[in-house]
Amino acid sequence: MDFAYTEEQRMLADSLRRLVQDEWGFATRRARATQVAMDARAWAQLAELGVLGLNISAEYGGFGEPPASLLPVHLELGRGLVSEPVIPSAVMSAALLVACADVAVRQRWLPALATGQVIMTVAYQEPGRRYETDPSLCRLTSAGDTGLQLSGTKHLVWHGAAAHAWLVSVRDADNEPVLLRVPADSKRVTVVDTPTLDRARCARLDFDRTPLASDAIVARGERARDGLAMALQWGVAALCAHAAGAMERLLEITIDYLKTRRQFGQPLAAFQVLQHRLADMLVAKEMGLSMAYVAAAALSEPDEGRRSRMLASAKLEAARAGRFVAQSAVQLHGGMGMTDELEVGDYFKRLTMVDQLLGDSAEQLAVLETLAALE
C-alpha cells in the first residue's frame, strides 16, 4: 500500500490541522469536556470538511476514500485531542453497516452518517465480560407478529449518550448472534452517561423489554459476527493513527518546554541526559506511527489471520509507545507536569486510555497467542 499522501489527502490534512488549531485549542477543548451535550457546531464543521463521510462510498453520499485515508485524518484529530465521536460513528458504525447490512439499510443510514445528521455507536461490551465480542447478557425475543423485545445491559459504550442510535450485539431465542439498530429514543431504555479519564464520555445502556420493530435487525449469524469484527478492526486502525498524532503533538510541546525552561543559566534542552530521553521519545513516536501505517494496511489485507495479527501488533505498539511518550513528557515537565494547568496532562490521559479502548494489551497478546497456536 502506498502511504504517500495524495494531493487531496494533503489538502484535507492541512485544512483539518487549521480547523483543529482554531476550534480545539486548550481552553476550548477543556470547556467542551465539561459539557454533557455534544457541541453540534463542532460536529457540523467536521462533516462540512468531509471527515465523517471519508470512507463511505460515493454511492451512499460519502467520498469513497481507501483505508489509507484514515491516517492523515486521525493523525490530525489525535494532535488536537478531538473527542467528538468520529471513530465510533463515522468509522466503526459505518464499517459495520457496509460489512453486513443489506442495501436498503445502507441506503437509509450511511448518507445520514456521512453528513453527520445521525450519530451511531457500537454497543458490544457487557458487564463482567471484558472485551468479549460474542453477546451473552443481551437477549432478543419476539413480541407479537411484528415486534421484538430487547433486554439486557451494555456498558462502556463509547459516546453512547451522544448517539441517535446504537448498533447492539445480542442473542435471539435460538441463541444466534444478532446485530440490532436501536434508536436512542426507544422506550424502556436507561442511559447512564459517564465522563472518562481522557475527558471523553461513555455510557451504560440498560434495556428492560425495550420494544423494537422487526426492521431493527441489521444482521444475523456469521454476518453479524463479521460485521462487528470489521467495526472493531476499523476502530483499532483509526485509534492507532489518533494515538500517533497525539504522541507527535505531545513531543512538540515537550521540546518547546525544554527549550524555554532554564536552569543553571541554560535551557533544559541543553542537558545531555534530557536530550537522550527526547531521543527515546522520538523513537517511540516513530514506532507508533509506523504501526499506525501497518494497521491501516491491514484493512486491505484479504487474509483474516494476517489482518488480525497486524492489527493486534499495531494496537500493542500504540499502547506501549503512547504510554512511554506520555509518562516521559510528564517527567520532563517536572512538577508542572502534574498540574491541571498544562495540556500535557490531557495528552497523558488520552494516551493512557488508548490501551483500554477496543482491547487492552493483554487482550491483544491473547489474540496473537491464539493465532500462533493455529499456525
Rank of each mutant, 00 (worst) to 15 (best):
F3C: 02
A13H: 09
R17P: 00
L19Q: 08
V20F: 07
V20N: 11
V20C: 10
Q21M: 12
Q21L: 14
A27I: 11
R30S: 12
R30C: 01
T34F: 12
A37E: 15
M38Q: 12
D39R: 07
A44F: 00
A44L: 11
G50N: 03
L52Q: 11
L54V: 09
N55G: 10
I56Q: 00
A58L: 09
Y60T: 09
G64R: 01
G64H: 06
P72S: 03
V73A: 01
V73P: 04
E76R: 07
G78C: 10
R79K: 11
P85F: 12
V86I: 14
V91R: 01
M92H: 08
M92V: 13
S93W: 11
A94P: 08
A94F: 08
A95Q: 06
L97E: 14
A101V: 04
A104M: 11
Q107Y: 05
V118H: 09
T121F: 01
V122T: 09
V122G: 05
Q125D: 11
E126G: 04
Y131M: 10
E132A: 13
D134S: 12
D134F: 12
R139K: 15
L140Q: 10
L148N: 02
K154N: 07
H155Y: 07
L156K: 14
A161E: 11
A162K: 05
V168T: 01
R171W: 12
N175Q: 13
N175T: 12
V178W: 03
R181N: 14
A184D: 13
S186L: 13
S186W: 07
V189H: 01
V189A: 03
D193L: 09
D193R: 15
T194Y: 06
L197E: 09
L197R: 11
D198C: 14
R201W: 08
C202Q: 14
R204Y: 07
R204S: 03
L212G: 08
A213G: 15
S214T: 04
A219K: 00
E222C: 01
R223A: 15
R225T: 06
R225P: 04
A243F: 03
A243L: 04
G245V: 04
R249F: 11
R249G: 03
L251F: 08
D256C: 04
R262F: 14
A270R: 08
A270S: 15
Q272P: 04
Q275K: 15
R277G: 13
R277M: 10
A279D: 14
V283M: 02
E286P: 06
E286R: 12
E286A: 15
L289S: 00
L289V: 02
L289D: 08
S290P: 08
M291R: 05
V294W: 12
S300C: 07
S300L: 02
E301Y: 03
E301S: 12
M310I: 00
A314L: 04
A319R: 00
Q327A: 14
V330N: 03
Q331A: 13
E343P: 14
G345I: 02
F348V: 09
F348T: 01
L357P: 02
L357E: 07
A362S: 13
E363W: 12
L365M: 13
A366R: 14
L368T: 03
L371K: 05
L374Q: 13
